[in-house]
Amino acid sequence: MLDDRARMEAAKKEKVEQILAEFQLQEEDLKKVMRRMQKEMDRGLRLETHEEASVKMLPTYVRSTPEGSEVGDFLSLDLGGTNFRVMLVKVGEGEEGQWSVKTKHQMYSIPEDAMTGTAEMLFDYISECISDFLDKHQMKHKKLPLGFTFSFPVRHEDIDKGILLNWTKGFKASGAEGNNVVGLLRDAIKRRGDFEMDVVAMVNDTVATMISCYYEDHQCEVGMIVGTGCNACYMEEMQNVELVEGDEGRMCVNTEWGAFGDSGELDEFLLEYDRLVDESSANPGQQLYEKLIGGKYMGELVRLVLLRLVDENLLFHGEASEQLRTRGAFETRFVSQVESDTGDRKQIYNILSTLGLRPSTTDCDIVRRACESVSTRAAHMCSAGLAGVINRMRESRSEDVMRITVGVDGSVYKLHPSFKERFHASVRRLTPSCEITFIESEEGSGRGAALVSAVACKKACMLGQ
């Protein structure tokens, strides 16, 4: 009897593995994704193909990295998701002549009506938060230079001027797309009239992360975010950046690689679950690469896999709870928690219980395998993109072996128990001629924006502006 049951459990697990095998990517698959990513990057950089390229390769006008001589107080704003952060950054000489960066910050959550109302409502709310922060720190009387981390696709015309191309991540505030974001912020500050600010720089969160990590390690020339969304930036040779005049030196390019796949480059790798996630998203047909990796989508992918296993009578005796059938019910943090389970399955059992399920031991094991399959594919897909960037940098610099540091931020990278190990191992397999160091950014977005502002202020002083 026991043997029969054991055989049935083994057969069930084997069927589960057959279904989950769809998520496995072979090294040849990853090399294919990497080569296609490089081709799209090239198209994004070139003037004649930029418009139709899915990977936009947006110039950021960040050319210099901090040298350690900029000092002063800077205000930093960070808008990239449902939370908005205001930070005071003091850049100065530390002990023994070292450079020191001290920060104080406060988080504000953005109400739904500000995210989806008008641009005026959104930026009025942001300036209200700045006003509140300055009151708390008794700094209303000071006109501070301000660095703005704005983590949406922007076409820069200068370091302090950028046109919002399109909202992502659930934002829909009308009247912002096609307009200068810094102008919208300046107008809102003017409307309030109770404080003055000098907006000197606007950067993407990947750029802010790279600059913040450069402060720790001067070989950091790539910034990457794996959180709600997924994106990367890197220092490109100016001669390859056709959208900006000049051939000397390097400029940081914001790849906006989340949109890779929007022209069909990933079609052969998309599964039924991916198509369902895409169809029910706020932007169907867009940001397809990001939807395979980002935390906004990972939990939902797992939920759809679990429903398939229920329908195949391989999980929960073929019956799903009402909660499990509800879109968004299986949160991405559950994926991390399930994979963090120590082996007694308590954590998995508790999560499934909150979803109205009474799982068996085998159910718990199957749910864990589903989570591992989805998150491992995410790590491997992400590795193909980064390997594409790094191999490109090595080739354009004609280096036999390139040493490089990548600064990384984002909740999936930082909080998932195995993502970074799987990701690092896969990147290294795909970049055999590179020695890569990964560092995690601390308060990256805010500190990085302030350091970019410090560079901009120093330049302005040198130019006598």
Rank of each mutant, 00 (worst) to 15 (best):
A259Y: 09
L314N: 08
T437M: 10
V16C: 10
L307A: 06
Q38G: 02
P111D: 03
S64G: 09
R369W: 04
I348V: 04
K458Q: 11
T206E: 02
S54F: 06
V310P: 00
E421Q: 12
E339F: 02
K104L: 09
L146F: 15
A201D: 01
G318S: 13
T103F: 06
F123S: 05
E93P: 09
V389F: 04
N254C: 03
A201V: 00
R358N: 07
T431L: 10
K458I: 12
E421H: 14
M8G: 12
E120I: 14
G117E: 12
R429F: 12
E40V: 04
Y234F: 08
D4W: 06
S383F: 00
N179H: 09
M107F: 09
T49L: 08
L75I: 02
E279M: 15
L47A: 09
R7Y: 13
E300Y: 01
L75P: 00
G170E: 12
V305Q: 01
D217C: 03
S321F: 09
L47N: 04
G388Q: 10
E67W: 04
T49F: 05
H218T: 08
A456G: 11
R428C: 12
C129W: 03
E242Q: 05
H137T: 13
I439T: 09
D341H: 04
Y234H: 12
L309P: 00
A208L: 01
N391H: 06
R36V: 06
V181Q: 06
G97R: 05
H156E: 14
M37E: 01
L430T: 02
T431A: 11
G264M: 06
E421D: 07
V302A: 07
T431G: 04
K12T: 07
V253N: 00
E96S: 11
R403D: 04
G193R: 08
A456M: 09
K420M: 11
S418I: 14
E196H: 06
E40N: 04
L309C: 03
G318D: 10
L276A: 12
I366Y: 05
R191I: 07
C220V: 02
R63D: 00
E443G: 10
S433G: 08
K169N: 11
M197S: 03
I436S: 03
V181Y: 13
S441K: 08
D409F: 05
M393P: 04
E93G: 07
R447N: 10
N180E: 15
G446H: 15
T49C: 10
Q106L: 04
A53Y: 02
R303P: 00
K190R: 12
I126V: 12
E112I: 08
E112Y: 12
L352C: 06
S340H: 07
A21W: 11
A379H: 08
Q287A: 15
K102M: 10
P111H: 15
S100P: 07
F123Q: 04
S353A: 03
E339C: 02
E93I: 11
W257V: 10
R392C: 05
I225L: 03
L314F: 10
L430I: 07
D365G: 02
Y108S: 04
S396G: 09
D247K: 01
Y215C: 00
A454K: 14
S426E: 08
V406F: 00
N180Y: 03
H156L: 07
G193I: 09
R5D: 08
F148E: 05
T60S: 12
L276Q: 14
P153Y: 11
V55A: 01
I130V: 05
H137G: 05
A460T: 12
M107G: 06
R327W: 10
Q239P: 09
L45W: 02
Q18R: 10
S426K: 12
A460V: 09
L79N: 08
S383A: 10
G229S: 11
Q286I: 13
L47V: 06
Q138D: 06
E51R: 12
R392N: 15
C129G: 05
M381H: 12
V253Q: 00
F123L: 05
L430D: 01
R5H: 14
G464C: 12
E312W: 11
M34C: 07
E268D: 01
R369A: 10
L386N: 04
F148H: 07
G94V: 07
V335P: 02
D274H: 04
R394S: 07
E96Q: 12
A329M: 13
E112K: 15
C213M: 04
K346G: 09
D194W: 15
L307P: 00
V277T: 13
L309S: 02
N391I: 05
C129L: 05
R394G: 03
E442A: 07
M115W: 11
L75Y: 00
E196I: 03
F330G: 01
G343A: 05
V226G: 02
I159A: 04
Y413F: 10
G388A: 14
G92S: 08
D274N: 14
F423W: 04
A387S: 08
N240K: 02
L292C: 12
N240H: 01
S280K: 08
Q138F: 13
E95S: 11
R368V: 06
K90Y: 02
A370Q: 00
W257D: 00
K458P: 12
Y349C: 02
Q219L: 07
G80C: 11
R46W: 06
L451N: 11
F152W: 11
G328C: 15
K104H: 05
K414R: 13
C364K: 01
A119R: 11
S174V: 04
E40Y: 01
L2H: 05
R333A: 14
A370I: 04
T376M: 03
G285S: 09
I390D: 00
G444A: 03
E435S: 13
S69V: 15
L75V: 03
H105R: 06
H105G: 06
E70A: 13
T206Q: 04
E256Q: 07
V305L: 00
H50I: 04
E237P: 09
G264D: 13
K140M: 10
L386E: 00
M121V: 11
Q106W: 05
A387M: 04
M115H: 14
E157N: 14
R46V: 09
G343D: 04
K140Y: 03
R5I: 13
R429V: 14
T149K: 11
E120S: 12
V199I: 07
T361W: 05
S373H: 04
V55L: 13
Q239Y: 08
D187S: 07
G162S: 10
G410Y: 06
G229N: 15
I293M: 07
L276V: 11
T103M: 03
L314P: 01
T82A: 09
G299Y: 01
R377S: 00
F171W: 11
I189S: 03
G193C: 11
S411N: 12
D262Y: 15
H424Q: 11
A320K: 15
R403E: 13
Y108K: 02
L75R: 00
V241K: 00
M107H: 12
D198R: 00
T118S: 10
S433D: 06
G170I: 14
R422E: 14
I351L: 04
L355F: 05
R392P: 04
S76C: 04
A11G: 13
P145R: 00
V389C: 06
R5Q: 13
Q18H: 15
D158R: 09
C364P: 04
R422M: 12
L134V: 07
L75C: 01
G343E: 03
S109N: 10
Q26E: 15
T326L: 14
G444D: 07
S212A: 08
E268Y: 05
V181T: 15
V241N: 01
F74S: 00
V199G: 04
E256D: 12
K172N: 12
Q38M: 05
V455C: 13
F150V: 12
L276R: 08
D247I: 05
R422S: 15
R345S: 09
R333Y: 09
K136C: 10
Q465C: 12
V86I: 11
D42W: 13
G170M: 13
V408K: 00
V62I: 05
E40Q: 01
A384C: 13
T168G: 11
H105F: 04
D3V: 06
T326M: 09
G446C: 11
Q337A: 07
K172P: 05
R394P: 01
G295D: 13
Y214G: 08
C220W: 00
T168E: 07
N283Q: 05
E67N: 14
K13N: 05
S360A: 02
